[in-house]
Amino acid sequence: MLAYILRRLGQSVLVMAVVSLISFSLFNFVGDPVNNMVGQEATREDRVKIYQELGLDDPIFTQYFRFVGNAVRGEFGLSYRSKRPVDELIKERLPATLELVLVSAVIALVFGIVAGVYTGIRRDGWLSKFILSSSLVGVSLPTFIIGIGLIYLFAVTLRWLPSSGRAGIVDLGWWRTSFLTLDGWRSIILPAITLSLFQLTMILRLVRSEMLEVMQTDYIKFARARGLSERAINFTHALKNTLVPVITIIGLNIGALIAFSVITETVFQWPGTGLMFIQAVDFADVPIMAAYLCFVALVFVVVNLIVDLLYVFIDPRIRITGR
């Protein structure tokens, strides 16, 4: 068991090392960093001085290890654009993104699993058919269309909810939350729904197909033959057996939610890390891009590590083989 965890940890470190190499190479491939920092009128001497100050004349390995050493401490240098430390900028923006992702993940999980189980059991009911066909819309429409549609309906026409931005923020000192006010909730609801729709559909369809498969197994038939109630069969015996593949997908998806909230944040002008990243790309703000890349990789690695540990918790057979 310990060996299993250590092996997984080792793999995670390897992934992070590769990603850091890629984001480090951004500095060297996306234009000349000195050119990006100094103005038009800088002299040649100024450039050389900055070049030396930044340590760009050191061997490439020294530069890389310096980058990794700083990155481990959370330091990615100054943003070219705002001249502020990148880690500070990310810390400022992170609560907005994490809250958005949390709300949309809860929506996707709750509705996805419940609807998945329902459509898996009542295969031929009209409600199942309706859910399934409307869920197709969820996968086939791009996020920005759904976002704009929701804004048009709920913000412009009905005027129930704000169309963009993050309102009602309460500063807790270490965290700026919008969960504590009604305005905060009103502003988060549309972007969260927009972000969750795709994941919801995926989870729904996956849970449904797993349920259909599990309902055919002998142990479900045997549970029926022992006269167990439908509820016990569906929610204890069947659902638990659908969870291993579902958790894999959910794990990957939560990573994806954080990493690719970019579009939703742009549509709703949500002041999160995704919006920050898009703006950084616009201005070729390499330190932010590099930091964002490392951050997203870290999120994926951590989420997958948790998923792997959850497997062991859910499925006792993995404990034995240790994989």
Partner: peptide, 8 residues
Amino acid sequence: QTSLNPLL
């Protein structure tokens, strides 16, 4: 092999 629920 298959008539018992493997996860319980």
